[in-house]
């Protein structure tokens, strides 16, 4: 059941991404990207990250894509006859995408047991439950404190400095965006 749901949303995500890259109309690109992000949010929830899944919808779909849509509508970017770059770009794309597809084939068969074995570097210790104690601890925290509580403790204790720095970064971004987009400063 879970496998069916995962592959359904994975297929939807790949379809959305492909259509986003290939559509000529920028608004259509934005809509297909929205469908990809929804599918990814569903996959996040399936992988046990419920808070991040719903934040993906709230932040990416609900805010960032709305900004994209506004800019496309305000600039009135029309659909062009052909948006693609020349043969040199096409060649570079084939090379890069080809390398990534090779990487994909290598990743497909990666199981937790192999991951554990690679990390522990000894087949005797390749038991995922023993090597990944941090994952088990995170699951216990979710069961004990709820979905939000399990992330709150690390965020405000271990990662407090990046959190505060990010807030300063957001302030700088707001000021920068307002200044850059004004007509006359």
């Amino acid at each position: 059941m879970a496998a069916f749901v995962f592959y359904l949303f994975a297929a939807a995500a790949v379809l959305g991404a492909a259509m986003c890259v290939l559509q000529r109309n920028p608004v259509a690109s934005a809509m297909w990207l929205m469908s990809t992000m929804f599918s990814l949010a569903a996959i996040f929830i399936l992988l046990g990250a419920e808070l991040i899944g719903i934040l993906q919808v709230l932040v990416y779909v609900g805010a960032i894509l709305v900004v994209f849509l506004f800019v496309i509508m305000l600039l009135n970017v029309a659909r062009t006859s052909s948006d693609l770059r020349g043969p040199a770009s096409l060649g570079a794309t084939v090379v890069v995408a080809g390398l990534l597809v090779v990487e994909l084939a290598a990743l497909w068969q990666y199981t937790p047991r192999r991951l554990a074995a690679d990390i522990a570097q000894a087949p005797a210790f390749a038991d995922p439950a023993r090597v990944f104690a941090a994952g088990a601890a995170a699951r216990q925290a979710t069961a004990a404190q709820g979905v939000v509580g399990a992330l709150a403790a690390p965020l405000f204790q271990t990662y407090l400095v990046p959190f505060e720095v990010t807030s300063v970064l957001l302030l700088a971004a707001i000021i920068g965006a307002v200044v850059l987009a004004k007509r006359n400063i």
């Binding site: 419920e50 808070l51 719903i54 934040l55 919808v57 709230l58 779909v61 609900g62 805010a63 709305v66 709820g146 979905v147 939000v148």
Partner: peptide, 12 residues
């Protein structure tokens, strides 16, 4: 378990 975050997300 993420009750009103869902409401905020979907209403946006």
């Amino acid at each position: 378990p993420i009750g009103f975050l869902f409401v905020l997300a979907i209403s946006s």
